[in-house]
Design a protein around this nucleic acid. Structure first.
Lengths: 187, 187
DNA sequence: GTCTATAAGATGATAGAC
DNA sequence: GTCTATCATCTTATAGAC
């Protein structure tokens, strides 16, 4: 299904995977090039500086997230169903891909990253929060802003704790709490 | 107040600060030695391998956390007050120290770290979860296990999102949600 | 405990051939 | 687009003097 992937996309797929395992600084041009069977100097043709690669990674991650969110929710009418799909994108990242969110790991490392990359991670979070706030507003929750930031925080945190403790139940407990108690308790 | 700090402690303080800014791989013996005004080779006397330093860092972080938790809660009788103190330790780390939790950043990088360090981060999370589960059990919450893992996840995640978005309100929203709705909604 | 000296390897990055 | 060759710099780490 990915046989026609162009070089840029192939590079980004591999780099994303590696960065979601061990972070920004642990990933080298050599590692990525090795996976692709090319030389590290060839990578610099596509992404001259590491910062360019990092920026492209976060931008692509954000873009794909928004696309999936739109695709998976466009036919849904109930905000609760839309929220379930939002959670499902995070679930897919953790349980199917077996990786934490790119912005969870880059977010944790943010103060030590090039400022442009930190800004891009910030934009990802802001977009998530805005989308969630609309959902909670539609659900007539009086504390929509609090629920929005806390939903994002809980999902990002649960990915990390689940990953470290190798226990998906931790993520599922968070998902259940959001879907059941966040909404019910605040109406 | 820290004038009599021995070398080991000084090293650990500086290394912890740096790792909580940019992660495990971004911190070098040179950086730490530079802050201390000594040579990197001197650091190897105290911590022969980087893994030794990493292990000592997480163990010390866990130990200090447990100590603070005990000190701040021993005179308290109500579980709700104890929970507030637990949250306050996280708040202090984020708002006073202006850093995320060491185990949030190492947890995110965990799959790429030496296994012993990952195990130590896991132990920190487990201890937190066990303490929280006791609190929620005392509060007669029927879903104590879910609330325990989700409280930890929410605090860790909120630190990261607050840090990236430079907005402490995100952390405070999470704290409020835990103190008010986690308990009330589940009784 | 801290220093100098040193090592082997990794890192991001560039110049220029094909 | 990818290669070879090369670079300065940084990295963890060790040996041995003071």
């Amino acid at each position: 299904m990915n046989s026609k992937m162009d070089s840029q996309t192939q590079i980004l797929e591999i780099a994303e995977r590696r960065m979601r395992i061990s972070g920004y600084n642990a990933v080298s041009y050599r590692d990525i090039a090795g996976d692709l069977g090319i030389k590290s100097s060839s990578l610099h043709y596509h992404f001259p500086k590491k910062e360019d690669l990092g920026m492209a990674l976060v931008q692509r991650y954000s873009q794909l997230f928004q696309q999936r969110l739109e695709t998976q929710t466009k036919s849904l009418t109930h905000p609760k169903d839309k929220l379930a799909e939002f959670i499902d994108i995070y679930r897919h990242a953790l349980i199917k891909q077996k990786l934490v969110c790119l912005c969870a790991i880059l977010g944790a490392e943010a103060p030590g990253l090039p400022p442009m990359i930190t800004k891009e991670v910030n934009t990802f979070f802001e977009a998530n929060i805005a989308w969630l706030k609309d959902i909670y507003t539609d659900l007539k929750c009086k504390n929509a802003a609090t629920l929005a930031t806390s939903t994002l925080s809980l999902l990002e945190g649960a990915m990390i704790v689940s990953s470290v403790n190798k226990n998906n139940d931790i993520f599922e407990a968070a998902a259940e709490l959001i879907e059941q108690q966040f909404i019910i308790s605040s109406k």
